[in-house]
Design a protein around this nucleic acid. Sequence first.
DNA 1: GGCACCCGCTGCAACGTTGCAAGGATGCTA
DNA 2: TAGCATCCTTGCAACGTTGCAGCGGGTGCC
Lengths: 341, 341
Amino acid sequence: MSGSRLRDVAARAGVSIRTVSNVVNGYAPVAATTRERVERAVQELDYRPNVLARSLKRGRSGMLALVVPELDVPYFSELARAIITQARLNGYTVVIDQTDGDAGRERELILRSSRAAVFDGVLLSPVALSAADISEHNPSVPIVLLGERIAASPFDHVAIDNVSAAREVTEYLFSIGRRRLAAIGDQPYETGETAQLRTQGFREAHISAARELDERLIVGCPHFHRSEGARAMSALLDGGGPTPDAVFCYNDLLAVGALRVMLSRGIRVPEDIALVGFDDIEEVRFTTPSLTTIAPDKTRLAELALQRLILRINTQDFSGPEELFVSHRLIVRESTTHGRQ
Amino acid sequence: MSGSRLRDVAARAGVSIRTVSNVVNGYAPVAATTRERVERAVQELDYRPNVLARSLKRGRSGMLALVVPELDVPYFSELARAIITQARLNGYTVVIDQTDGDAGRERELILRSSRAAVFDGVLLSPVALSAADISEHNPSVPIVLLGERIAASPFDHVAIDNVSAAREVTEYLFSIGRRRLAAIGDQPYETGETAQLRTQGFREAHISAARELDERLIVGCPHFHRSEGARAMSALLDGGGPTPDAVFCYNDLLAVGALRVMLSRGIRVPEDIALVGFDDIEEVRFTTPSLTTIAPDKTRLAELALQRLILRINTQDFSGPEELFVSHRLIVRESTTHGRQ
DNA sequence: GGCACCCGCTGCAACGTTGCAAGGATGCTA
DNA sequence: TAGCATCCTTGCAACGTTGCAGCGGGTGCC
């Protein structure tokens, strides 16, 4: 019984198409008996509204795009899950697009694609989009940025306070007696603002504590993957600089890579070197040692981002982009406290 | 310049709407000069086809649904990535739905949801759907099953040969001198066919090798999560049964959980107990020790599943569901060979 | 008893696109 | 020059739905 239309239901129930529509949408007042008759016809014919036609008529598709670099990076898949769940609660469907960290693809998806036009809004975790791109082809739908910002862009932005978080991590490491801290993950170029904020927090905490900071202990990483964490850690150990007694990685994957290198070299974590990550992905609760990390409130982040996006969609008010912050907390695990505390 | 329609382009180019449509779609023969004029107008107005209207008219939405239990389980996010990529290559857009392993939700999504009607096809990684559900409300779009089967259902099914894979693992463990093998992940009930096939392979290999199998060494797991792997491993060690010298986990997450338990108890892997997983998720290349595992060809799986689904969509031929197999291989890493081989 | 009002229901048109089939122009041949 | 084929272009209708405005009949009020 698939493919029945409003028309068919109307015929069966002996009412007009419009009335069926009203019943289905709960719009206008409909007499109880009529409603019942229509509902029975809907049941019998297994009628399902054609979302396409409805969207076309209404001018809204009920679809949101979630644009992320890579879906199989745990942070993004956990975020995607939260967002899909939230979106469903708000009656929206989410389409996920992957940019593979490619600037061109990102531009394409947001700005030019014909598919872009069908979305009521976009949640974007930008990697390479610059303000210049935006001003050139300004997109027609509301966009909310997740995590990474785009400087001087007219978009709302939801993230945690990266400077504070990094400062907390650093202060915590000092507080447990570590003195030579390394940082893995700096990205000193335009599209790496998040990383830069973390470096900033790292630096600020050093200054506040009146500790010296050896620049060789800050290692850059163009991508936040496990393999890069391993590479960076090796570089740190073999680079000829001072050996740190604690390492702060800008995300958990980097830390996993770093951990692997340390363990394979017989370095004890945390006895010889303490380790801290960022994101609190499920994976690092099960590493040995389990990983101390910063846990952003992902659920809240999804909630806020969606709330904001939907607000923009409904009001069509694109003015005064806002910076929204989501709370985070430091979760202490074995990689900084094994056997102690 | 957003929101321009075929009509606007036609007006600007001084041709009929129909001709613009022909140019945009590359349909009928169009004179070079006309084409050029239209294309310029398209550029100038930044025209983008309205996918909704097009879909409505054509009777195809160009959207596929990917239904998975949990997007943040690495196997599924890696699979999702592959599928989204493949779908894009074929001109399709993917919408991901999560069932959270809930039977009701799964039923809802596939069979009743009004949104279901908008998809041209569905890729389903079933958890709890039974043949009874299907026959009751048979869905109107083609469905291809990924991984888990639904017994006696009329759907194509793409998966690896689980029995062979499990047998290979088991034979491999025997070949490196292990004698008391445990298996974690059995699911001896209707919706656990995949797990049962792995158990079957595990058993068959024992029989072929004429080894005895202590039933206490087969531990069930309703969900394939890290925490369950940990629980199962603890049960194995504390259960009073024989202590295994090798453990075969039915997926990598279970193995990660088991590994954590072993390491925290001071058990050496693989010296005391060897460990094998299943799925080859990125994560287990970086555990210490790295994990020996079965690697299904996920890219090929996505490819095959999509090819099959698109075939069904295009032919509207729902007859003779097929069983398609994807190759796999055993990847040997440290968790079975540390220091040796 | 008449009038105004409101409830419940309806028809028409349109959202932006494409399928169909015919229309018009052009060039070539006889 | 007429006739025909070819090539390009077009108008109409429809996909399934909802916005709008309006219509008829019943009810309440004066």
